[in-house]
């Protein structure tokens, strides 16, 4: 088993209004098979026994699908490995003696809560404004009554893989949520089920996104670089087209 020791520089902040600061921690030898969050677990066990409060960080499934975890590692949301959430990042991506700077996702619309935890409920607010097909339970036609070309279904799934982690916002110089919004708009615009609400969906979701303080896309492409699910900025292009189409060609307000 290979081991490495690391110097961690971690953002500590007691609460939303408190002043934060970086604090340094040296780890003992750690197995390179360990995951990044397990490294924080080990650190927290030490801190607890030494009388310092452990580092607060969001996490849940630890298999890269729930979207709960996330922090900026050496300047990059979710760390150095592409298409990988923080919980799936393993220490074999680092070298003995590395300094690792760990800080929360920062954005106007993501208020800090504590240490590495931020409030991403703005994402729910956007989805509430149209990120669904308005069908009640019951009475749906037979599932095979609506053939959908395989390619459309696959493209919709590519977009729908978004896990709502917020890395795209954290990576964007404008703290834009357009990759997140574009993914949901694309998922439903690509499918026949999404057509009846296609116009009002995109207009309402974009309006809410603006209202919540997310910035605009400037084609920096940082978002797709850090997206752990590989959602591409084609979805932003589609979002723009959908928005223009709805704004000019539909009767939606």
């Amino acid at each position: 088993m290979k081991t490495i020791s690391l110097n961690l520089r971690i953002w500590r902040q007691k609460g939303p209004g408190a002043t934060g600061e970086f604090r340094n921690y040296e780890t003992g030898p750690l197995s390179t098979d360990m995951s990044f969050l397990e490294m924080l677990d080990v650190l927290n066990e030490h801190l607890t026994l030494e009388g310092e409060e452990p580092v607060a960080f969001d996490h849940d499934c630890r298999e890269g699908i729930c979207g709960m975890c996330g922090a900026v590692v050496n300047g990059r949301p979710h760390g150095p490995q592409s298409r990988t959430t923080l919980c799936q990042l393993h220490l074999r991506q680092f070298h003995n003696g590395d300094t690792i700077v760990i800080e929360p996702f920062r954005a106007e619309a993501f208020k800090p809560l504590r240490d590495l935890m931020v409030d991403r409920s703005a994402f729910d607010g956007i989805i509430q404004n149209g990120g669904y097909v308005s069908v009640n339970t019951g009475g749906a036609p037979d599932a095979n009554a609506l053939p959908i070309p395989q390619r459309a279904a696959e493209q919709a799934l590519d977009a729908s893989e978004c896990i709502g982690c917020g890395a795209c916002v954290a990576a964007c110089p404008n703290a834009s949520a357009m990759l997140f919004v574009g993914a949901k708009v694309s998922h439903l615009a690509l499918l026949p089920q999404g057509q009846p609400e296609r116009n009002r969906r995109v207009i309402n979701m974009v309006r809410k996104m603006d209202e919540l303080g997310f910035g605009n896309c400037r084609n920096e492409r940082e978002c797709e670089r850090v997206c752990p699910k590989g959602v591409t900025i084609r979805n932003i292009a589609r979002l723009n087209r959908e928005f223009l189409r709805a704004a000019f060609l539909s009767e939606e307000e």
């Binding site: 669904y132 097909v133 069908v135 339970t137 019951g138 749906a140 036609p141 037979d142 599932a143 095979n144 609506l146 053939p147 959908i148 070309p149 395989q150 279904a153 696959e154 919709a156 799934l157 729908s160 998922h187 439903l188 499918l191 089920q193 999404g194």
Partner: peptide
């Protein structure tokens, strides 16, 4: 069976054959 119908109506992108069926 009703669950699958409901989920497809919601736009859940299940895997499909080339002919467009599930």
């Amino acid at each position: 069976t009703a669950i699958i119908d409901q989920c497809v109506a919601q736009g859940v992108p299940f895997a499909r054959e080339y002919g467009g069926l599930l």
